[in-house]
Amino acid sequence: MKIGVLALQGAFLEHEKVLRSLGVTAVEVRLPEHLHDLDGLIIPGGESTTIGKLAVDYGLLEPLRQFATAYPTWGTCAGLIFLAKDIGIDRQPVLGLMDIHVNRNAFGRQVDSFEVDLAVPALGDVPFPALFIRAPVITAVEPGVTVLSRLADGRIVAAQQGHLLATAFHPELTGDPRFHRYFLKMIEKVENLRTSD
């Protein structure tokens, strides 16, 4: 299995490390031609404005949109913002594929960043160690989107829509590979469907 990690800016090496530890080939995506022959894509955390601008300037926006329309794609933090259809008043380029409404920097500034043990029923009973760094939050989801996790106050921080996955926190930073395994299963499921067609 070969998974691309968008490597324009941000924590892409951390995702690659987890993928390699799970026996998956990780490929850095900086230009449209790097999207060939991938089974899935991770859009990492970083500065969403920086990633958006570089994606536009290097002609990646439409190729990324086409890829993520067809193949499993997972966005963490800035990547979640990039996948969302509605990011409020912010005018920055996004793929706009997931039917979620997002509030950027929803928790405030860095002094308000935090870690918390999060209940994620799809990953089993053991809570997931979640790191929120100037994180966004999903304020609402449209029909077709499954909520995977909420904070204690009810705010949505992980969701899935078919082959698209979004987390407001950083599974690549906390040493627990369960979310990455979950994403690999999503890819296998899509590939099984393709071969059975």
Partner: peptide, 18 residues
């Protein structure tokens, strides 16, 4: 938990490649 090492180092990780 706010202000942990992971939270502090984590923001720097988000700035990488920038």
């Amino acid at each position: 938990q706010t202000g942990t090492e992971a939270v502090k180092r984590g923001l720097a990780q988000m700035l990488k490649g920038g």
